[in-house]
Computed example of a mutant assay.
Amino acid sequence: MRLRCAVLDDYQGVALSMADWGAVADEVDVRVVREYIGDRDRLVETIEDCEILVVMRERTPFPAELFARLPRLRLLITSGMRNASIDLEAAARHGVTVCGTASNSEPPVELTWALLLGLARGVVRENTALRTGGPWQSTVGADLYGRRLGLLGLGKIGARVAAVGQAFGMDVVAWSRNLTDERAEEAGARRAASLEDLLESSDFVSVHLVLGERTRGLIGEAELKRMRPTAYLVNTSRAAIVDQDALATALREGWIAGAGTDVFDQEPLPADHPYRSLPNLLATPHLGYVTRRNYEGYFRQAVADIAAFLAGEPVRRLG
């Protein structure tokens, strides 16, 4: 009996071309679902016949209630080795093996700088004016050289962002609760005395922390008001680290000059969300990890995980 596999949220329609699915073709029928399905009942109707599911990061959450409605499910594969939207305990109770793939840290670093540079030089506004016959030059760019870059988090991604900041001649400082002077120095940065000190003294602040109980809502109204009115905030980490309503207010009322974000509390972003109309917000639809090299790695390793599962061999389990 052939098994059924659905690849969810293949927005670009590339899942089947990014890997050789022939390795499992004799035993598994694979189909893709391109559109996001937010309605739980419709989602169940779409995938309830599947023994195997491949999901892209945290686009479709898998809480306990969903596992209970998918009795055929036996293998759930997520891109990356961390997915906070999957209830691993519920998966285990329902006999579902959850595994993942490797993920490269360079793509979110690159997008961080795309947002930061886009904000600093008014790229979108100037490009729109050029294409629509608007004014020829209407902005004055913010310098990077000699300015302070404040990094919240100095892990694998934050350290790479720091290296680029150094290449631009920026003064790089960093903060996290467990950061030491030695670790900061290794990454070419200085440890800020406190979160408040970093926010008050930085011209650009970029978020690279893991979401957890200690970081959820870390940047709220009080923290945004500590930033300079000429400063910019960039978040390519997790939306919940920054209070979304407070950020919208900060942008509307000019507490900060602008912000760049790739992550949102609700994805896809609703059509009437205020973020869609804020002129000083540069936003991208969660593209940090969306590159060819990452996608090829995700789907090739997803195929390998399926093959290993079918052969009864160990897979890259989460949790």
Rank of each mutant, 00 (worst) to 15 (best):
R4Q: 14
A163G: 07
I306T: 05
T230F: 03
G100E: 04
G150M: 00
Y11L: 12
L195Q: 06
I47F: 04
V33S: 09
R316P: 10
T215E: 04
R300T: 15
V205D: 01
L251C: 05
H94Q: 11
T101C: 10
A167T: 13
E313C: 07
Y232A: 03
V303L: 11
V161Y: 00
L16T: 05
Q137Y: 12
A187V: 11
L8R: 05
P135V: 14
S17V: 10
W136P: 08
G153I: 04
E126M: 09
A25Q: 15
S176D: 06
R216W: 00
L218H: 01
Q301K: 08
R69F: 12
P274W: 02
Q244S: 12
R226T: 06
L278I: 12
A64M: 09
A250L: 07
R42E: 13
I157V: 14
Q166T: 13
D20H: 10
V140I: 13
A162R: 04
N104L: 13
A193T: 15
A23S: 14
E196P: 01
R317P: 05
R72M: 08
T284M: 12
Y289V: 13
L117H: 02
R292L: 13
G38E: 11
R74N: 09
D49W: 09
R74W: 01
E27V: 05
G158R: 00
E267V: 08
A25G: 08
V123I: 15
H208L: 03
S201Y: 03
T46N: 11
Y275Q: 08
W21K: 07
Y298D: 05
G260P: 08
W113C: 06
R292H: 14
R214V: 00
R72T: 11
R131L: 15
T291R: 07
C99H: 03
S206H: 07
Q301T: 10
G288D: 08
V109A: 06
A84Q: 15
S277H: 14
G260K: 05
R183T: 13
G150I: 01
G319K: 10
L318N: 08
R31W: 10
D20P: 04
T236A: 08
G217D: 00
G153Q: 02
Y289L: 15
Y232P: 00
R216N: 02
T112H: 10
P71I: 09
L115P: 00
A84E: 15
S176L: 07
G288Y: 03
T112F: 04
G150C: 01
D243P: 00
E106S: 10
R238V: 06
D9Y: 06
G13N: 09
H94T: 02
L278T: 03
A246V: 05
T230D: 13
G169S: 11
G80T: 09
C99L: 10
L199P: 00
E253S: 09
E27W: 12
L75H: 06
R4G: 07
L152D: 02
R31E: 13
R125T: 12
A307L: 08
R69N: 07
